[in-house]
Every structure is written in structure tokens, then in C-alpha cells.
Write a protein that binds this DNA or RNA. Structure first.
Lengths: 333, 333
DNA sequence: ATCGGTTATGGTATCGGTACCATATAGTGA
DNA sequence: TCACTATATGGTACCGATACCATAACCGAT
């Protein structure tokens, strides 16, 4: 391996002088700079970032720990994070937990060892001990998507979105609206459920508990939730509210198999878009701003890293938007 | 920051003894081990991976540089890589080039500085200088998806797949098959095109060059390629062969707008599946094995890192499979 | 009693860089 | 001429860990 000492020898200077050339620090005569740069080229020298980071106590790296990288929502968040980070000269280590607490914990441990400058993470349950482990080391941290007390949080208004969407369905005349919720251990799921319930309460309707069904944030879960629902519940729902986009896709596949037409036989709505359409975009949904979510969170984190911006925890709640397309219709009489 | 010296002081031993406890190396009396472990817990000590890596000359990290992380094909490859890596105790740094050579180059430079133990990458053009830069440092490298001489390659049989698929369309009676190819600077695109041409030649048909149209591996490109095609070419094609799944999605949206029905008015085929279906899966396609691709490549890389397995470059070509569904029909008379 | 091996621990140099302090020359203003 | 500053470079210690060598107690074998 070529080290700074090899370059120094070749250029006939001290190692520290080479270091100064690399970092554009201090005074260097043009002549020396040229000799050093020539030596660097000839030897194909590149500085070892490990030793630099060790000395600088800075790795210029942040961790992004998300729950499901196969969900386009999260890849878009990732884009936002990457764009904000590369602007700030930071690189991003992307990790995926599959909503598993054990994976989250082992990633955090690994990344702490690696001296990551900051953490962007999606918490899985409400256990804050992991968060404390990061905070104790005074490493900047911003939590994504899900509320958690005592920490910076950037998330969307799930409760409000669910409320508005349910309100919309009620306005179309639906009274039996099924909620295919994600795991209720996850705060986002709970918020969406409570927005749904609040909208029902607004009209003085008492929620039918058999219409609320819980499963993973996955296609297969959406599929089997619908199957279970239509197996057990009578009369069947006239509208489905999916907890997220993947659940919606699975649910729609199940509806297709059941021979039900959207929106003629049943209305379907969800959270979050899907970028792959085979025909016309038609799902009515609550649109979050995943890119903004990632971008804002990363910006906030970078502020912390640079020690700019105040330190009192903030909760940034991004607005959501109702995107009405063609997957809903009034219920059949 | 808590260092190994703090722990040593607390436990009343030398730093090196703490190091031995951490790494389970050499002899340690039970009593000392317990004292050290207690000190580690009390101080919440975690070893600094930077200094460990500097000393060990090993980071236990590999780089995975893909061309488009928003494409489900690549997220699945990533899964394969991660699974194989975590089995081997390695973590993966995921980078995304968007098919841009400049981004690829800056990532490689960054990752070389970070002392990554190995590289898995998707080359963009045929310029091998970047590859040489990695090889010169004797860092293990496996190239994904696209052939490149003198290096380990793991890829799919694009040419064979395109040939089989075109053969299938010809068998249905299609004679005007449009090819919506990806950028021809990318080897995969060229292979798919040449498989298509070979199938035409098999029947003694001379390819109509106006039916071959080139664009990015993106939805928007697929969309505009179809628009251009139907604007310019007469008579229009009876079948479309999309260069990849994203092109296919964009193309189908354009067909929808043109009021053309699949497969009644036009047949559509592509490479690679899309995991998000709103109804029944219906695209007939050439299925690669992205998970296998990632897994095999990572395994090979890990063998290199551990210096097992022979060093002569191999090219592993994974078979593809024709998945016939319902997006094709004989051409209208 | 001596030898040699196992067990247990520590001192010091080192990985590849940079911080800190020292040094030396040249140029500037009083 | 002298003090002072800007310019240019180097020596040594250090970031946090481990490699290497040394030391010492203890044990059974000779």
C-alpha cells in the first residue's frame, strides 16, 4: 500500500507537507506543491480515509436505517437523503431492517463502532433504549416517519391524512369501510387507524371492529387480509382503506381473484403512491412527500452535525395531500 | 469518547488485555475477563472500528455499486448480496450511479479511500480504466450484469433470452416486432438487441431498422419511445419488446393513451418482472434471477477476499427463463 | 534442581494520517 | 538596523486499537 510517507520520500519533503497539499492547508510553495502532486500521480496515491477519520474524529458518513427498501416510498426518501447529504459532502450508508428490531439493533451497534457522524432512522417499536444509546454518545440523530418523544422527528401527518381520506369515503356514501392496517406496534399504523376512527366518530358512527384487520406492511399481508375479511365479515365492506401501498397491491390482487371490480363493486384507497402503472394511474390515495421527508430530515441532521441550529428537539410534521383518482365510487345500493 | 484505555484503567489491567477480551484472543483468566467485561458494561464501551480496521488492514465492508436502486430488479440483487455478505460477516455499502459514469468514478474513489475490502459493481461503459484502478490495488472485484474482459463477471444470458423471446413472438406470427432498447453504450442492451436480430435472421427476415429505437432504462423513455414509434413508423408494429421492465411500464402507459389494447391490438414483452401488480400478473417476460445474481456474485467476491477459490477470472452466465403470461396474442390479420 | 511448556499479563512500536510546536527565510515598516 | 509578520517546511506526539516480544508464575517431567 502506498502511504503518505512514500509520497513524501518521492517528492523529497516531509509527510506533513504532503498532508498539507492534500488538504489545501497552510502555506505551500508552488514548486513544492507541483512536486508533491507529481509524486501522488506517479505512485497512484490515495489517502487512507480510516486514518484521516481517526485523527479528525469525523467520518463524513451518516447512517440511514429504513424499514423496507423494496418499498418505493423508502427509495424516494433515500433519494432525498442522498441529495441533501451529497450537497453537504457526506456519504450515506443505507441499511434495511425489514421492520425487525433485532436487525435495527445490530445495525446501530455496527454503525456506532464505525463512528458514523449521524443517524437517520425509522424506529420500529416505542422502546427508546436504542435511541438513548445513540444520544448518550452525543451523536446527532433524527427520527424518520414515526413520532418518538425527546428526539428530532420528521414525519407526515398520518392521522390527518387518514381522517381526510375516511371523510372522503363517508362523503361518497360508504358506511362499511374496512381498514387494513399495518402492525399496531408501529406508531404510523396507530395514527392512521385513529384518523379513520375519528372520521367515523365525526358522523356519530360507531366503528365496526370486525372491519379493522391488522397485518404486516407487505403485499402478501394485504392479500390475506382481504381474503380473511371476505371470508368472515357479513355484509362485506363497500370500501377498503389500505394501511400502505404494498398492502393495497396485495389487497387488489385478492379482489381481482374474488371477481370484484374497482370501483364498481368496491372502492379502494391507500397511503402512498406506487410508481409503476400499467394503464392510467387510478388509485385514490393519501400522498405523503417522501422526497421532502428525506431531504428535510437530512438537512436537520446536517445542521446538528455542523452544530448549527438549535438543540431542542423539534417535531416536523409534513402535510399530506388527498389525491383523488378513479378507484372510488359511491357504494352500490 | 470512551477508549480501551479508560476500560483498562477501570479494570486495573493493561489496554492490550482489554483488547484480548474483546477479540477472544490469547489466554485470559476468568477473573480478569469478568472484571474487564464489567468495566466495558459500566462505561458503555464499544470498540472504535476505525482504529481496528487501520490496524487489521481490514474493514469487513464491501461496496455494491448498482445502476438504479429504484428498479426492483436491483433491489432484489441487493437482497442477494446482503444475505451472502451477512453470512460472511461483512456489511455492504450500497451506492447508486443512475447509469452515470461520473458518479461511478467518484464512488469508486471514495470507497477506495475508505479501504473497502471488495467491490461488486455494474460497469456503465466499456472503459476499463476504472477497473484497472481497483485491480492495481489488488482489491477483489466482481462485475455484475455486464460482461467485461479480464475480470470476474456474474451476469444473465441476455442474448439467449432475447433470442428465445423474439422466437416466441415470431412463432405467434408477429413479423413487425419493435425493439425498445436501452442505451446501446450498455453491453446488456447490445446483447438483447443482438439476440433479437439473431432470431429474425434465423427465419431469414431482414430486420427493419426503423423498428429499433433506443432510450434510457426509464419509464419516461419507454413512454416517449412508443410515442415516437407510432408517430413515425408505418405500418405500426404488432409487438413491442421492451429493453427492461421500466421501459415496459412507460411503453404500456403510452399504449393506453393511444387507445391500444394489450394483447388484442398489440403484444408486449420485456425483460425482468415487476413486483407490483394491480390485477393478475400478465406480462410475458424473460425472467432473470436477480437474487441469485447478487448472491452468487457476493459469494465469489467473499471467496476472493478470503483468498479461497482460484484467481483466474471467470464469467458466470446465469440462465434465464421465458415466463409466458397473457400480454401476447397473434397479430390481428 | 533444572528444564520446558502452558497460562496470564504487560511494554512498546506501529497502522496512516494530522495537530501542535518549532524553525528558518524573506519581506515590510519604523 | 531591528522588530515583526507572512511564508514555507519539518519533528514529534498522538488518534484508538493491536502485533510483537518480553516477563513471570506455575506445573509436571527429567
Amino acid at each position: 500500500m502506498v502511504t503518505i510517507r512514500d509520497v513524501a520520500k518521492r517528492a523529497g519533503v516531509a509527510p506533513i507537507t504532503v498532508s498539507r497539499v492534500i488538504n489545501n492547508a497552510s502555506y505551500i510553495s508552488d514548486e513544492t506543491r507541483e512536486r508533491v502532486e507529481a509524486a501522488i500521480k506517479e505512485l497512484h496515491y490515495i489517502p487512507n480515509a480510516l486514518s484521516q477519520s481517526l485523527r479528525f474524529k469525523k467520518t463524513n458518513t451518516i447512517a440511514l436505517i429504513v424499514s423496507d427498501i423494496t418499498n418505493p416510498f423508502w427509495t424516494t426518501v433515500t433519494r432525498g437523503v442522498e441529495d441533501a447529504s451529497s450537497e453537504g459532502g457526506l456519504s450515506v450508508i443505507l441499511c434495511n431492517t425489514d421492520e425487525r428490531q433485532d436487525k435495527l439493533e445490530s445495525y446501530v451497534k455496527l454503525l456506532l463502532q464505525r463512528q458514523t457522524d449521524g443517524f437517520l432512522l425509522v424506529p420500529i417499536n416505542s422502546d427508546a433504549s436504542l435511541i438513548h444509546r445513540i444520544q448518550r454518545r452525543e451523536i446527532p440523530l433524527v427520527v424518520l416517519d414515526r413520532p418518538l418523544p425527546g428526539v428530532d422527528v420528521v414525519r407526515s401527518d398520518s392521522e390527518g391524512g387518514a381522517h381526510a381520506m375516511t371523510h372522503y369515503l363517508l362523503g361518497l356514501g360508504h358506511r362499511r369501510i374496512a381498514m387494513l392496517t399495518g402492525p399496531l406496534t408501529i406508531a404510523t399504523s396507530r395514527q392512521r387507524l385513529s384518523g379513520y376512527q375519528r372520521a367515523l366518530n365525526d358522523l356519530g358512527l360507531s366503528p365496526d371492529e370486525t372491519l379493522v384487520i391488522e397485518g404486516q406492511f407487505k403485499q402478501e399481508a394485504g392479500y390475506s387480509m382481504v381474503k380473511t375479511l371476505f371470508d368472515r365479515v357479513n355484509p362485506p365492506p363497500t370500501a377498503l382503506f389500505a394501511g400502505n401501498n404494498l398492502i393495497a397491491v396485495g389487497a387488489m390482487r385478492a379482489l381481482y381473484e374474488l371477481g370484484l371490480n374497482i370501483p364498481d363493486d368496491i372502492s379502494v384507497v391507500t397511503f402512498d403512491d406506487l410508481p409503476f402503472f400499467f394503464g392510467q394511474p387510478f388509485l385514490t390515495l393519501v400522498a405523503q412527500s417522501p422526497y421532502q421527508l428525506g431531504w428535510r430530515a437530512a438537512k436537520r441532521l446536517i445542521d446538528h452535525i455542523n452544530d448549527t441550529g438549535d438543540r431542542t428537539p423539534i417535531e416536523l410534521v409534513l402535510p399530506v395531500e388527498l389525491t383523488v383518482r378513479s378507484s372510488c365510487a359511491p357504494p352500490k345500493p
